[in-house]
Design a protein around this nucleic acid. Structure first.
Lengths: 125, 125
DNA sequence: GGGACAATTCAATATTTCATGAGTAGTTGA
DNA sequence: TCAACTACTCATGAAATATTGAATTGTCCC
């Protein structure tokens, strides 16, 4: 991921509804298992309390930045997270903040269950 | 770092000049060693080709988001990176993208010199 | 004190982004 | 085919953000 891609991704994430949307899709991705990857636009709108047109606007922004992908299934459009893109952004930021002092980041250490539990209890909003 | 802090940080970084500014300060922080931490506003303006007032605006945005700190020295104001804040943002994103599939991120692996060299040759802009 | 310098603040303007609701296109099943 | 459904697009106005240059504040050196 280069600077301009990172900039697009940052702009896309720098909005409360879109950040919540990403977090929702990430959670869905891990909870749903392999079988049911992604969520339909209508499901997302209901989960976040957004109007259809507003959601569509935000989905387009995230998809334009490459952070999510979509596929059509019957009359639904299923959106799912594109983990490599999100990972690319994190890597990009990591290079910019971690070079001189890797110890700053707790996430650089091997992950454990305790660390995961710190955040899993928080509500989405 | 909670969701709102992350949102502030993302908004602050989602601008080309500010992202360049952060990268400049990170590079300065690692190249300068312990002695000369940070850069004066004038130095930054010269390095990035920004007008004084525009730079001041961007510096205020970054400082408001907690990503940089400042101290006054004689008639200069020295700005330096606040690595923990940047690290907190990365950690926040990591939780949101890395829970289900840590392998996605190259940065989760122990860092080595080869990895560092991948990016150090790239120009700032 | 007076001039030069560093940086910030302010006001005015331009630009971008966001939100809303109405309307449109494609899909499904009776 | 028709009605119901899903999702998207478009036009409008509102709000937030960015940019510019002039004015201001504080510091240094003579």
């Amino acid at each position: 991921m280069d600077r301009d891609q990172a900039l697009n991704a940052l702009s896309a994430l720098a909005h409360a509804d879109r950040l919540d949307l990403i977090r929702l899709l990430v959670r869905q991705g891990q909870e749903g298992g392999q079988g049911q990857e992604g969520m339909a636009a209508g499901q997302i709108a209901a989960a976040l309390g957004l109007s259809a047109s507003r959601l569509s606007f935000h989905l387009a922004a995230l998809e334009g930045a490459g952070l999510i992908g979509s596929r059509k299934v019957a009359r639904n459009v299923i959106y799912s997270i594109r983990a490599p893109a999100l990972g690319g952004l994190v890597s990009f930021l990591m290079v910019d903040c971690c070079r001189n002092d890797p110890g700053v980041l707790a996430c650089c250490a091997p992950r454990d269950e305790g660390q995961r539990d710190v955040q899993s209890g928080s509500s989405l909003r």
